[in-house]
Amino acid sequence: MPEAIIKVRDLVVGFGDHNVLKGLSLDVHRGEILGLVGGSGSGKSVLLRTIIGLLPRRAGSIEALGTRLDTASDAQRRGVERHWGVLFQNGALFSSLTVRQNVQFPMREYLKLSERLMDEVAIAKLEMVGLTARDADKFPSELSGGMTKRVALARALALDPEIVFLDEPTSGLDPISAGDFDLLIRTLQQTLGLSVFMVTHDLESLHTVCDRIAALADGVVVAEGTMDMMMMSEHPWVKSYFRGKRASMIAQAPRPTAM
């Protein structure tokens, strides 16, 4: 049994008198890329935002890196948060800071480092995500969509986290850039030994990079496992998603060997 780095148990989250997540349980294993799929409005982003503490939960427990987040003190929480990075859907870069300052922001906050080391590490991170030192002094408004995602990823990786949360990392990118970004996530996951929790709509990402997939419907995880297990699921939503028209077109194409 692989070690679970995030453990969600019987999670209930809702707004008003409507519960979005109804007793959901899910594990993310250490060193894997878990893809979370679900229809629009099924609560994928709600789950992600609840785990990282942006939304309150009504019941259930969340455990990350061996710490119960619901009962943890503020200091314990911060200790855990320091070990994860989040890539928001639209990047959420600070628009008044340069790319370099954006990447250095968490370092400045959490670590006591010399300016030189921060500069060097920030550039190294930017180069790891496929940018160059020349991009470092640009402002977020000067970046293209793909570059914004890359900078946001560099910022999420700034503290060398153990867990990375990705919210629709390839949305808004053209298929080629999306493919490159998938590959980048896979490469970084292997060099840095990350555990990745990825919310996505992109069937191709699921095929290429995810070790395991969890399908969200009706407020619970209705199917969990590898791509092959998804294909065998008889749940109506999972069936139409993975065996629908679009899905079969992608499945017929030869599977890229990114690993």
């Binding site: 060097e120 550039i123 180069e127 790891m128 030192a133 020349r134 060099t191 840095l192 030994g193």
Partner: peptide
């Protein structure tokens, strides 16, 4: 061995021209 990749990765880093600004 599993840290080798990381070292190779940073081996490429910070080799570009530093900015003149």
């Amino acid at each position: 061995e599993h840290y080798r990749g990381l070292l190779d990765e940073v081996h490429q880093a910070n080799r570009g021209d530093t900015d003149a600004r």
